[in-house]
Design a protein around this nucleic acid. Structure first.
Lengths: 212, 212
DNA sequence: CCACGATGTATCGGACCGATACATCGCACC
DNA sequence: GGTGCGATGTATCGGTCCGATACATCGTGG
């Protein structure tokens, strides 16, 4: 999962570890707290070893002279390679059971603007099915086996059930919008130097909170 | 976290691994999918080594004779010890940052009927604070940094924000109910052979879904 | 008669986290 | 003028937990 997220972010711009973590937290803030460095750095190492990314120590920019004084530990900037982009495309397109779990779905969804519509639909429907099953499990529990559980556990289940129902509705909206919507898929980004380029492709739907 | 959950469940009744997993899934179904055996068995081993639980191979009940034929691998029944109960009480009472995370809070909440009211209140308020901070982070993102993110990521944040607001309201209700409510804390269970005993202590609140 | 799903115990590699360590920079406060 | 403190920055280590896998028994229905 981390691999996918890193590859996705580096496709937008080259970054060093700290920045990467911030962007990761920003993009995935809705689904997980913050990525630990204990996960981030080993993963970067792994990706580099596999050839998906390259790491380059940042040169002091101006003044190549005066190098060895204080031995400044420069920031390490990571850049995605062509193979890395291929890898990303492969990861983003392949869907399995782990794609429908909480974390997996969140990460995939966060990169939907780089995913083709057919895959988006597949993922949304898979996720819906997963949540529906969880919902059914909770309903059964609240129905048949209710007297076996104490009041607090029951309350927890109720809250969980509510969240499931809400997410299913949310997914329904997204699916409907995806089906009917003209969704111009953004294929590749290419050069990663643009920085300010804002590609906000398909409006996922007017999910306005009007509850009259 | 698993340690706490296992100790809590074994306090209600002795069980073997498979049953333990089912009960675990039932009790925590609202917050996590299912506990893996790859976590369960090593943890049981650890708990046994620490002396919190004891494991006993199930005797074939009748017919002690005819032992070595087919060498039936009996089920291993785990029972909590007195030290284990102390350990559980210690774990359930101590609150830290990990208590307010998604999983940690869920597990603690599931055993609220074995937690004293002061601790319950502390946990609920800590959780509320945590979610409020997450909520503020998402609001900031949707406010200031909105144009930096694509439409799908934004939609994900919106959904996350919605879930945060909903959970805060839920927690408010629980806190209010906890403060005003007479909540008879269940101290100890003692004998674990009763099986059918139903101790449903404090009604956590009328969280009815009336939306007129 | 046997295939299949539920019951049951168990291990292994890998992903990820939390704590920790250490170094630099800029800025506010005294 | 110094000084502490929070943000920036890289990195490791131990430990928890997961997913895949293996293997054995039992009852039921085709």
């Amino acid at each position: 999962m981390l691999e996918l997220a890193i590859l996705g972010l580096l496709q937008e711009a080259s970054m060093h570890g700290y920045e990467l973590r911030k962007e990761l937290t920003a993009k995935l803030g809705a689904i997980r707290a913050a990525i630990s460095y204990g996960s981030l750095y080993p993963t970067l190492r792994r990706l580099q070893a596999a050839g998906w990314i390259t790491e380059a120590a940042e040169t002091p920019a101006t003044a190549e002279e005066v190098p060895a004084l204080t031995s400044r530990r420069g920031r390490v900037v990571y850049t995605i390679t062509a193979e890395g982009k291929e890898r990303f495309a492969q990861l983003i397109a392949q869907t399995g059971p782990e794609t429908y779990g909480d974390t997996g779905f969140g990460v995939h969804f966060a990169f939907f603007s780089r995913t083709d519509q057919a895959t988006r639909l597949r993922i949304l429907e898979g996720r819906r099915r997963t949540i529906e099953e969880r919902r059914e499990g909770l309903r059964d529990m609240l129905g048949r086996a209710a007297e076996r559980l104490d009041a607090y556990t029951l309350e927890l289940q109720r809250h969980g059930l509510d969240a499931c129902e809400r997410e299913v509705r949310w997914l329904e909206e997204l699916i409907a919008n995806e089906r009917s919507g003209r969704a111009p898929t953004v294929p590749q980004d290419g050069t990663a130097g643009g920085r300010r380029e804002d590609n906000s492709p398909p409006p996922p739907g007017e999910t306005r909170k009007e509850r009259p």
